[in-house]
Simulated assay, not measured.
Amino acid sequence: MNIYQKLIEVRKAVPYLKKEDRGGQYSYNSSSQVVAAIREKMDELSLLLIPRIIDKNVLTETVENKDQYGNIKKRTTYFTELTMEYKWIDAENPEEEFIVPFYAQGVDIAGEKGVGKALTYAEKYYLLKQFNVPTDDMDPDQFQQKVEESKPPKPITPEQLEELEKLVERFSEIRNVKKEQVYTQALGVTTEPEKIPEGLAYNLIGQLKHWIKKATKETA
């Protein structure tokens, strides 16, 4: 596989992450959770991810407030901005590289943690966005069910279409009604069977087989 195909395999390995950490009223994904979910597949595919800081910018803001005794207290906030790039390298073929520019920021009141916070912020969000990982408070099984329910139904298969039309024709002969009436009145579906979803077609075929079996016994 080339490096792009390997990155697709990493994406396939992490279809969803539940938010497992809480801060105040909010739940979130920690950086360690995101890295742990992706790293195993990276190791398996011999992929290296190398961060690089291209430029930095630190803004400071000092605010004065009075405490309960009337003493003035100063508080300085450090806002760190990093212009970065992430470089993917295929260790099995080091000449293959994939570079992504990225931006990060971190806020700190001590001053020395701004860069670390920005790097942690960048690492987590870069990986989540690079691999299109959806996150939510749902249990993984609930999330997968929600995804499946949101998918459009699969169309009827050619084999189902052929079998359904034969059964409708047979039932129309037994009951001496038009095929259109079988679709609309007996089955309650469209007269255009090619538009019937696969799951519904399966049920209709079973229903028609049951009716035909019962009707032929009655007329025997």
Rank of each mutant, 00 (worst) to 15 (best):
T62R: 03
G70C: 02
A37E: 05
K66P: 06
E44C: 06
G70R: 07
T60L: 03
G70P: 02
I54Y: 08
R52E: 14
P51M: 04
K73C: 12
L59T: 09
M42Y: 02
P51G: 01
I72C: 12
R75C: 13
R52P: 12
T62Q: 11
V58Q: 11
Y69H: 10
E61M: 10
E61Q: 11
T62P: 01
V35C: 06
E61D: 12
I38V: 01
L49V: 04
S46V: 07
A37W: 00
T62V: 03
L59R: 03
T62A: 03
T77A: 08
A37L: 00
E44P: 03
L48N: 15
K41M: 04
K73I: 11
M42I: 07
L47M: 08
D43G: 06
T77R: 02
T76C: 03
T62F: 03
I72W: 09
I38A: 03
L59N: 05
K41D: 02
E61V: 10
I54N: 12
L47H: 06
V63K: 13
I38G: 00
M42S: 05
I53R: 05
I72S: 14
T77P: 00
I50C: 08
P51N: 04
L47T: 01
K56E: 06
T76P: 01
L49A: 11
D55T: 14
V58R: 12
E61S: 12
S46C: 09
E40D: 06
G70F: 06
T76H: 01
T60C: 03
E61L: 11
R52I: 11
T60A: 08
V35I: 10
V35L: 07
I72E: 14
T60W: 04
E40S: 10
N71S: 15
V58D: 07
T76K: 05
V58H: 09
N65E: 08
A36M: 10
E40N: 11
K73T: 15
K56D: 05
Y69D: 11
L59C: 07
V58K: 05
K73G: 14
D55S: 15
L59F: 05
G70H: 00
A37M: 02
E64Y: 05
N57H: 14
N57F: 10
L47I: 09
N65P: 06
K56Q: 02
V58Y: 09
M42N: 01
K73M: 13
